[in-house]
């Protein structure tokens, strides 16, 4: 998929673990893992809002469009 999730990069920048983020955004570890590994088919605005709030970033910092080759 041409949409790349850079959640792990932002988490590393903020020095935040998956467990910590999971508690802050009120999402299960399994769902966060789906998002982090790029397996997710869709992201709810509410989830994106919670992640941006917890990581103090913009949606563009987490999601990136890359052309398929």
């Amino acid at each position: 998929m041409p949409i790349v999730v850079n959640l792990d990069v932002m988490m590393a920048k903020r020095k935040m673990s998956l467990n910590e983020l999971s508690e802050k955004v009120d999402l299960t570890l399994a769902n966060l893992s789906i998002l982090k590994t790029g397996k997710a088919k869709a992201v709810r605005f509410s989830t994106l809002e919670a992640i941006c709030k917890a990581l103090d970033c913009q949606p563009g910092d987490i999601l990136e469009y890359k052309k398929e080759e």
Partner: peptide, 8 residues
């Protein structure tokens, strides 16, 4: 259903 399961 798969799409719904993979919606975070």
């Amino acid at each position: 259903q798969t799409e719904n399961e993979l919606t975070v």
